[in-house]
């Protein structure tokens, strides 16, 4: 039985880990290499790095961070943020990433998923969906949650799987940093429509809410940031809680 994964997420801007609420109100949370080491020692199952800085310099700094982390942390690393081309994917993989996450660029040109999948294998390509509810539907947003692409988030997940995405990282913009729990309706809707693994992200504030992401949202993994960065829980706390409720974890 494959276990459910606990994935710390490091939002990196100009070489520092930062975290905001609803994608805004950013504050500093530390040095990415130090945090990566700490989470690895705590038995994190993977690590995700998202470059939220817009500049070219920020991207280069991110690649340096990944390069350094991959020399001493031997668990899977995902890199996202600002990846627009197959060449960008190649650079991230060369630096030491095992998977790359794409969001805005894939919405602009869905063939990027097919090209990446062909070049590096589907297991390498993570589609990140920043979803927000408007009316009765969920839409996929671009540019860090600023613009509505007009695409239905659930249909987009299905389309992305067909194009060659190997995993879906689902972020709820409405719930990001709110600590009111994952958007379980959205998570379950996507997880039940695709065969590839779904990672729940955005909104969990308690151990119970994290667990609900898996039990009710049917997610295969949970991704979290500020709860870990600010020491509210350790990864061991989460795994102990999951185990107690008979959700398999690497333990």
């Amino acid at each position: 039985m494959v276990t459910h994964r606990i994935i710390p997420c490091l939002d990196v801007d100009e070489g520092r880990v930062v975290k905001g609420v609803k994608f805004k109100g950013i504050r500093d949370a530390g040095d990415p290499v130090d945090l990566a080491r700490r989470y690895n020692e705590q038995d994190a199952d993977e690590l995700t790095f998202l470059d939220i800085g817009a500049s070219h310099k920020s991207q280069q700094t991110m690649l340096n961070v990944v390069e350094q982390v991959s020399k001493e942390v031997f668990i899977p690393l995902t890199v996202g943020g600002g990846i627009r081309t197959v060449d960008d994917m190649q650079k991230a993989l060369r630096a030491g990433a095992d998977k790359v996450a794409v969001c805005t660029a894939a919405l602009k040109d869905p063939q990027l998923l097919a090209q990446g999948s062909h070049a590096f294998g589907a297991q390498c390509i993570v589609l990140s969906i920043d979803a927000k509810k408007e009316g009765d539907s969920y839409y996929a947003f671009t540019h860090g949650g600023r613009n509505n692409s007009g695409k239905d988030a659930i249909e987009w997940a299905v389309e992305a799987e067909a194009l060659g995405a190997g995993e879906i990282l689902l972020n709820s913009i409405d719930r990001d940093g709110t600590k009111i729990g994952y958007d379980l309706e959205l998570t379950e809707a996507i997880s039940s429509r695709v065969q590839i693994p779904v990672i729940a992200s955005g909104g969990a504030g308690t151990l119970r809410q994290l667990l609900e992401g898996v039990t009710d949202g049917k997610a295969d993994a949970v991704l979290l940031a500020s709860l870990l960065h600010y020491g509210e829980f350790t990864i061991a706390d989460i795994k102990a809680h999951f185990s107690k409720h008979e959700v398999a974890v690497r333990w």
């Binding site: 039985m1 276990t3 994964r5 589907a122 297991q123 995993e167 693994p197 993994a221 690497r250």
Partner: peptide
């Protein structure tokens, strides 16, 4: 779910 992604015994 395919691919199997994660830690297994």
């Amino acid at each position: 779910k395919v691919p199997q992604i994660g830690w297994n015994k």
